[in-house]
Computed example of a mutant assay.
Amino acid sequence: MNDVTLRLNGLTKTYLKGTPGEVQVLRGADLELHAGEAVALVAPSGAGKSTLLHIAGLLDTPDGGTVEIAGQKVKNKGDRSRTALRRQDVGFVYQFHHLLPEFTALENITLPQLANGVSEKAAQARAMSLLDRVGVAPRADHRPAALSGGEQQRVAFCRALANKPRVLLADEPTGNLDPETSDQVFDALMALVRDEGLSALIATHNMELAARMDRKLRLEGGVLRPVE
């Protein structure tokens, strides 16, 4: 299908290869992520969710298999090409916000755009628009330490979407929040995903949140299986 934004085919990954402690995390994982859908990735701790997300987002390389993002096959691309593709087409959100502490919320969202060649005026306008949509615009000039946990994570979402990626990868994005804040932050994330029309692969232990996505996949035995 021509609306596939992320395709993983036969991914394998082994750590400590050739040693007594060898661990085969991925054993032929396949995935097609389509434009506009949000997919939950569920698995117990240590099953390889983070490894899968890092490979999908070009932060790590598989031992075998292929990754294709927005129609571009990544295999044999150099570091510069991989970085450019990741910066343009992939957004990341982690359990912890990882915002730059010396910069304001607005600046944290503006900086990735400047690095991508966007003018300062346009970058600030995009940043303010995103902050407004998640209800944090009044806090735009505050540094991360002055924001609540929920506000910090909403700013992190905005930063991930600053460059208008095709694919959003999120690793337990609400895992560090209390249940009420988690629900509010997740609603903000899903609203951004729907409004921007991008695809999202979201790893979570929270099955209630997973049930609110378009479909669920379980990483089990190194492969991805649908969850009914």
Rank of each mutant, 00 (worst) to 15 (best):
T104V: 08
F92I: 03
G150A: 05
Y15F: 09
R86W: 13
V134D: 12
L131E: 10
T204F: 09
A70R: 02
P20H: 10
G10T: 11
T14P: 12
H34R: 08
V90D: 08
E228Q: 06
A160H: 00
V93G: 01
N76H: 14
E120G: 09
K75G: 13
D178S: 03
L85S: 02
V74Q: 05
N206K: 06
G149Q: 04
R87E: 11
L168I: 03
D63M: 00
R218V: 14
D30G: 04
H54A: 05
R143T: 04
G117Y: 11
A70G: 09
M128R: 04
L52R: 00
A160F: 03
G221S: 15
G48I: 05
L8P: 04
D187W: 00
A38F: 02
P179K: 03
L161C: 06
L99I: 05
A115D: 15
C158V: 06
R143L: 00
T19H: 13
V93P: 00
S119W: 06
L177I: 03
A188M: 13
V25R: 00
P62M: 03
D178L: 02
M213W: 05
T83C: 07
P179S: 05
T83R: 08
A210W: 02
L130V: 11
P226N: 06
E22T: 07
L41F: 02
R7I: 12
Q184P: 07
T5A: 10
T12F: 13
E68I: 12
F103R: 15
D63L: 02
L189C: 12
I202F: 02
G71R: 06
R215P: 09
L130G: 09
K164G: 06
G175W: 01
G48L: 01
G91Q: 02
A29W: 01
V90K: 00
V227H: 03
L130A: 11
P226R: 01
A35V: 13
R87N: 12
F103G: 11
V4P: 04
E102M: 08
V90E: 12
E120S: 15
L217I: 15
N176S: 09
L31Q: 08
L85P: 01
A84Y: 02
G57P: 06
P179L: 05
A203V: 06
N116E: 11
D183W: 06
A43F: 06
S182T: 05
A123M: 13
L192Y: 05
T5R: 02
R218C: 15
P62D: 03
G197T: 08
T181A: 15
I55N: 03
L177C: 05
N2D: 10
V39L: 12
A38H: 00
G91P: 01
A127S: 14
A145T: 12
R82K: 15
D132P: 15
L26M: 09
L198D: 10
E102L: 07
Q72S: 14
N116W: 11
M128Q: 10
A156M: 06
D30C: 02
D141R: 04
L209I: 15
F186P: 03
D89M: 10
I69H: 00
L100I: 09
D195I: 09
S45H: 08
L169Y: 01
R27I: 11
Q184F: 14
T12V: 15
P20G: 10
K73R: 10
V167G: 04
E196L: 15
V118D: 15
Q184C: 13
Q95S: 05
E22F: 13
L99G: 05
H142F: 13
L31M: 09
V185W: 05
V67G: 07
L130M: 12
P20W: 11
